[in-house]
Design a protein around this nucleic acid. Structure first.
Lengths: 330, 330
DNA sequence: CTGTTAGCGCTTTCAC
DNA sequence: GTGAAAGCGCTAACAG
């Protein structure tokens, strides 16, 4: 059924019906009421395509994720998607999902009003340029520490430092003095560069001999931890750049016949689902994804509906204390 | 730019341009070629809404996920979505994401050509009926062991039995005779009912005293395992209905000062991301999600494009061996 | 407050 | 092989 037939049944003109359905002011309350009721009753629903064609808006935003973000795991995506859907949905927007590589289908970009782009470790400014049709489509990108070099987009940046600072303070207060660092060996490691300063701020002294660039798998973390713990003056606590690495570190400790947190404390990063499940549950640095989602969508909607200028926001991390940290052993 | 302006630039009629763009046979190869090139060059792209309005198709399928599936974790959703996007995308379909509750927005159901519904533990036949507009919209539902009572939809069912059978055989071959079962306490536990038979098939005898219905959290699993291991004749191996439960069971073992798999073997179910990360990495029963995705989308596309009858398919599970199982201790 | 009508941008007969 | 014209179902501007 289309609006013509529907209007005929109601003995109204299509204009009136359309106005009622669009919640326009010029229609009498009782008419609107009855149109709405009848629509429900007869199951009439407007053709979205016709509607979008004529109003020139899609009420759709596309969420664009790389295959691997190399940082917060799949859980990150789902949580982000939930958050984005929630606030975008509240404004009448649907979500078009685009996983996989940022492939060059700029083709269908005109069927959406805006883009939420989750940057991966390999995403470049050029990718953003292409995805946004040189900035013609409003976009917000969830980026790591700093915006990419494409100023037509908004950015929500992830600042991991606050949570790491908390982590270090926590360790310091437990009496730890020698703290090992296990990195992921990725480029652009802002955290690694800031680590010595963060240590100092927590009243600790940084020993470069206690740092290892490991990789991304649990085994990488395990190997790095084994090396660190074999030192003549081994660390009493280990900070790992990712929870995956941290889980490997925990395994290393038990391979040596020692325990976490009895003999060595371990702190991870990212708060992946697994972090609460490993043994012992991992104290870790977490990012507040729902916050990120809300901020991102608000920025995007402002660009779409009010032609607002792109902005860049930053959201920090915080420490989640579980059971992998204890007092320094001797 | 619209097709009128574009056609004017090319000195062609809009009819010809349209036919070229749609890859119709009645247009000369050289004309088509040049239209395509020019479109690329000038960045012309057809208005999707106008196109969809006139052809009466949306080239869009909606993927509908409940907030919590209570079975395979978020990873499940992402993997499924990737798979769905891949095969649907190959046929020109976009993906509309709908997370959260199966809310009653049947409103926008007419903007999609089909639905992929991921059933949650609370999804009912009525939910499906509503989502599909009483079956008017083609749909495939990813269901647990059996289809729901709504025959207008296709079903891809998950049969967990094959993997569990493998698990039990694995345990039997390691010399285990007393195997504990930790359930999730959910309704409709087909697996629990089948467990005794599966045990028998693996040459083991089922002892009802070794079964516990725990819950869904790691702590639930821990408590259940503690109970089981405190028995006068404790099990030497534990099978947990979910990896989350299994991770709790592992913690229970270490709380008792024992080790996995030295003193007790543990097998989980679902192969969540965390399973590979706990200590020790969990042997677990996994489902092949990409298979599910491919089967589901194929069934759906058949219904959409060929008005095929709904079908119901089943995909099984298999065992992934990691390090949480070893020879039975004494 | 309600009815009428001109498009939105495209596909697709129907002529040529 | 190509062009002209009739809609697809809706919204919004214009009359009344």
């Amino acid at each position: 059924m289309n609006i013509v037939e529907f209007a005929k049944i109601l003995n109204l003109s299509i204009g009136t019906v359309s106005r009622a359905l669009n919640d326009r002011a010029e229609v009498s309350p009782k008419t609107r009421q009855m149109v709405l009721e009848k629509a429900e009753e007869l199951g009439f629903v407007r053709n979205t395509n016709a509607r979008r064609l004529v109003i020139g808006r899609n009420y759709m935003i596309r969420i664009e994720c790389p295959t691997s973000t190399h940082i917060l795991s799949d859980r990150y995506l789902v949580e982000l998607a939930r958050g984005v859907e929630e606030v975008a949905g509240a404004h009448g927007y649907d979500l078009l999902l685009h996983l996989g590589t940022h492939r060059s289908d700029a083709v269908d970009v005109q069927e959406v009003d805006g883009l939420v782009i989750v940057a991966g470790s390999e995403t470049t400014a050029d990718d953003i340029r292409r995805l946004t049709q040189k900035g013609r489509t409003p976009a917000v990108v969830i980026a790591w520490a700093t915006p990419l070099d494409f100023p037509a987009a908004s950015y929500v940046c992830l600042d991991t430092l606050p949570g790491v600072r908390e982590a270090l303070e926590c360790l310091a207060s437990l009496g730890h003095r020698r703290i090992g660092y296990i990195g992921s060996g990725q480029p652009g490691q802002r955290l690694r560069d800031a680590f010595p300063r963060l240590m100092a701020e927590a009243g600790l002294t940084w020993d470069p001999a206690l740092a290892r660039e490991a990789g991304t798998t649990p085994d990488d973390g395990c190997r790095a931890a084994l090396e660190l713990l074999a030192l003549s003056e081994p660390p009493t606590a280990l900070f790992a750049r990712t929870d995956v690495l941290a889980s490997g570190a925990v395994q290393a400790v038990s391979q040596l016949g020692k325990t976490v947190p009895g003999d060595v404390s371990v702190i991870g990063h990212d708060n992946i689902e697994a972090a609460a499940l490993v043994n012992p549950p991992l104290t870790t640095v977490a990012i507040n994804i729902p916050d990120v989602a809300v901020l991102a969508v608000k920025a995007l909607l402002a660009m779409i509906t009010e032609k607002a200028d792109p902005i860049t926001l930053t959201v920090g991390t915080h420490l989640i204390v579980r059971r992998s940290c204890g007092p320094a052993s001797s």
